[in-house]
Amino acid sequence: MRKPASAIAVHAILGLYTVLALFPIVLVVMNSFKAKRAIFNTPLQPPMPWNFDPIGYAKVFGDSAITSYYLNSLVVTTGTIFMTLLFGAMAAWALTEYKFRWNTLLALYLSIGIMVPIRLGSVAIIQLVSDLNMINTLSALVLVYTAQSLPLSIFILSEFIAQIPKDLREAGRCDGLTEFHIFFYIVLPLIRPAMATVAVFTMIPVWNDLWFPLLLAPTNGKQTITLGVQQFLGQYITDWNAVLAALSTAIIPVLILYVIFSRQLIRGLTSGAVK
């Protein structure tokens, strides 16, 4: 920008909005480390040696099964990412590489899920999961989330697979590789960046979801961290130290992951968006 005055105005607007975006998060995390008196008397003060008090965290990790909820979320998220990436890439490869009669129709069928939220089928999903004796299991969540994530990931991965030069696959075929070898040893390594993007896209809604854990695995220690925190908050509603600490335990890991993967995520968003 040429004029410094307008540059200052732009930075002022963006800066103010950034403060607005971060203020609530910072406030909650900051106060979770403070003693009760300090939370109420000086909420805007950062934690200092004289007002530091980790009692909230002691409660969160002592009274509840928060650690195992983390583990549940980790299992569900990793399971979903693994299945979505493997099955999504396989389907995307078959749809882009091989010509067969129902190709376009199948691609269309698989893309319904991009626009229609799977939640609308919840009534039947519960019946199905209970018929399969899978209520309160993490596998039920993994299967449902995989079904939810597959359409968009097939769509994104197809775009990338279509860009792989044809020569590479033909070279593999000339060398006598089977189609499976071509897929696993040539195609998969080439679409690694796209897989990272899909992994991030899959991870966020699954990790943060409240609906399906509430419906499919609400008790028996099978809660995910999001549901676990929600239930914990309901019980400890008046204990501000515990509530703030519980919120922070849900925020901090996501923030750390976000800082690590933000470049990947934004790149993914910016390449898939214009299509």
Binding site: L106, G121, L143, T146, L150
Partner: peptide
């Protein structure tokens, strides 16, 4: 067979846990 192996896992999971429940809900 090759097509089936590549497509089946995605199509089966997606149909069972996404399309079927959606249709069954409308049916219900």
């Amino acid at each position: 067979l090759l097509l089936a192996v590549f497509l089946a896992p995605a199509v089966i999971i997606y149909s069972t846990f996404s399309i079927y429940p959606l249709l069954a809900t409308i049916f219900n």
